[in-house]
Amino acid sequence: MTAITAARRDTLGRRLAGRRDVALALGVLVVLTLVALAAPLIAPHDPVDQDLLHRLEGPSAAHWLGTDESGRDVLSRLLHGTRVSLGASLLAVSVATVCGVPLGLLAGYLGRGADLVLSRVADALLSIPGLVLAIAIATALGPSLTNAMIAVGVVYAPGFYRVARGATMTVRGQTYIQAAITTGCSTTRILWRHVLPNVGTPLIVKVFLTFGYAILAEASLSFLGLGVQPPLASWGSMLKRAVRYLEQEPMLVVLPGLVILVAVLAFNTVGDGLRDALARRDREPS
């Protein structure tokens, strides 16, 4: 069993790396993760250090990407923003997973009443415009980055619920699950040991794609003032502040936007590549 899994992973890995765009996107994700972890070490300046004598300056030897409206180093703020933005997205994806997956497993496994009620709630949540719901929840909880990303997580939870539910319903009909039930395994044990490993792959794809959306959502909420509070900065909050200087110093708006674009593109590309590779693997006889 372990050998088979290892062999499968091996070919999957090779297929993923075989696509040049996916390999590049994976590289981008590795770099972003390293930057997020090592931001204080590699940033040339303190990201909150103000220098009012050098406001809104263009690139120079001291400030490679220039300074913002308070004279803070843009490069250092972008590097530290990576940590804030990725951390916030990770929080949102975790909340979505923790809320959506167990309920999806239960609904898919138990069916009937539990499924009916949970699926209606998921339908309802999905018919509320996502960002409106996120704003409403975040506002009710009080404006902070953590609350905003919990709200985003709740918004994305129905998506995880549906993936987990669908995959569980497929797995549930298989003979080995029926066998496990007849041998008297407890429901929790069956879900944990037999069902979860089989719904894992579609969930991994979902995680990557949602991570991309979460970065966009963080940026949107920060732009509306619901995200990170000053003086800390995420990519989105840097954009918000820079808008006032759009005419004077457009680069302050262009740069964080480009960073967001690249990060989201990388997550989406890896997610799509993973999905294609898995679809191809499933089509071939194993």
Binding site: A219, F223, G236, L239, L246, G257
Partner: peptide, 16 residues
């Protein structure tokens, strides 16, 4: 793929 990764408000700012 590029369009879906672009924050819409940023696209708006670029258009402005």
């Amino acid at each position: 793929a590029l369009a879906v990764a672009t924050p819409s408000f940023w696209l708006g700012l670029m258009l402005i």
